[in-house]
Write a protein that binds this DNA or RNA. Structure first.
Lengths: 190, 190
DNA sequence: TAGCACATGTAATAAGTTACATGATTTT
DNA sequence: AAAATCATGTAACTTATTACATGTGCTA
C-alpha cells in the first residue's frame, strides 16, 4: 500500500465514512468541521473523486433530487480499507512553514513597531481561531451529541485550541518584551 | 509594492541582510537556524536568486576562494527596502494543514490502538523539535551572543517551543483519554 | 427578476520537491 | 582511492489555488 504525498484522497474517504455525499457537500462539510486544520478546493476535490472511482475506492450514483442533478459518492470496502490503512501510518515529520516566525526572525531589519504589529495581528487571528473552534465544537455537540466519532472530533479541536492558546500566551509575552525594549511604536497602540 | 503568494524571495533577502553569501550557504544557514519553521530547496533557491538579481534586489559577484568558484550575493538598497516592506505587511491567515489532526478527526474509523500510536508518535516528534530548538538557541547564544538580531531569534524560537510544549501536553491528555476509553492497544505500550 | 445557494467541472498558473547532471576539493 | 562536502543548476513531476464556464432552483 503506497500513499501520495498529501492526503487529499484520504480526507475525502474520511468524509465518506460519515455517509454518502457529493463533492459539493464534502467541501461544505470541511468548511464547517475541519476548516481550522484541513481544507480542499474544488479544483482538488472533483478530480480526486474521479480517481477514487477509477481506483475502486468509491462508487458514484447520479441522483436528481428535485430535478437538481448531483453525484453522490459512496465508500467501497476497498475505500474503507484504504482509509484504515492511512489512519495507521505515522505522518512523517514535515516542516510547517510559519510566515510569522520568519518575520520575527528577521525582525531586526523591520521598521520600529512593525514586529509588535505582527504580534498583535497574530494574537487576533488566534482569538478568532479559538472562537471558530469553540463554535464548531458547540454546534457538533448539539447536532451530533451521540455520534460515535464525537470524542475524536473533540480531541482534534482541543489540539487546535491548545495551539491557539499557546500562541496567544507567546504573543503577550513577546509584546511585553518588545515594549520593554522600546520596540513598540506608541502611536499605534495608545 | 506587491508580493508573491509565498515568501521564498523574502527569506533569501532576510538571510542576505545578515551578510553577503552564496545560494549554498543560504540553504545551510536555514538548515541551522530556521529549519523548524522555514526551509527552501535548491530548486527554489537558485531560480529565485536569478530573479532577485534581475529585479535589482541583489547583486552577484563570482568569487574563486581556494580555486573553488562560488557566486556571492549581496543585498542592494532596493532589496533592503523590499525586505522592510514585507516585514511590515500582515501575513494573511492561512490554514496550515495538519495531517495528525485529520487522522484524529477520523479516528473512529481506525483500528484499535492506531490513534493512540499516532499520538505517541506526535509526542516524540515534538520532543525532538523541542531539542532542536534548544540546541539551535544555545548555539546561537554562544556564536552570536552580541548580534543585534539575537533577541528576535530568541523570540521566534520561543514561539516554536511553546507550540511543541502545548502539543506535548495535548498528547498526554489525549493518550490518557484514549486509555480511559479502552482505545489503547495494550501490546504496544506495556 | 435579481441574486444567492446548489452543483460540477476545467484551464491556467503558481509553488514546491526530487532526482539528476556536473565538477572541484577535502577528508577518511 | 573512495567518500563526503562544496557548489550550481535544470527537468520532470506533483500539488494546490484561482478564475472561469455553465446551468438549475429557490428566495427576497
Amino acid at each position: 500500500m503506497s500513499f501520495e504525498k498529501t492526503s487529499t484522497v484520504e480526507s475525502l474517504l474520511g468524509l465518506l465514512s460519515l455517509g454518502p455525499m457529493s463533492g459539493y457537500e464534502m467541501r461544505q462539510m470541511m468548511e464547517r468541521s475541519t476548516a481550522n486544520f484541513w481544507t480542499e478546493s474544488y479544483g482538488q476535490i472533483y478530480p480526486a473523486l474521479k480517481r477514487m472511482v477509477k481506483d475502486g475506492l468509491a462508487t458514484v450514483e447520479e441522483q436528481s433530487k428535485d430535478g437538481r442533478a448531483k453525484k453522490v459518492y459512496k465508500l467501497t470496502g476497498e475505500g474503507e480499507r484504504r482509509l484504515r490503512a492511512w489512519l495507521g501510518v505515522e505522518a512523517k515529520p514535515q516542516v510547517h512553514r510559519n510566515e510569522l516566525l520568519l518575520k520575527v526572525f528577521f525582525g531586526d531589519q523591520a521598521l520600529r513597531g512593525a514586529i509588535a504589529a505582527q504580534v498583535v495581528a497574530e494574537r487576533e487571528r488566534c482569538e478568532e481561531a479559538l472562537e471558530r473552534y469553540e463554535a464548531t465544537v458547540l454546534r457538533m455537540e448539539v447536532e451530533h451529541a451521540r455520534h460515535p466519532a464525537m470524542p475524536y472530533w473533540r480531541m482534534a479541536a482541543r489540539c487546535g485550541m491548545a495551539h491557539a492558546k499557546a500562541t496567544i500566551a507567546w504573543c503577550d509575552e513577546t509584546f511585553a518584551e518588545l515594549e520593554k525594549r522600546g520596540l513598540v511604536s506608541k502611536a499605534k497602540f495608545y
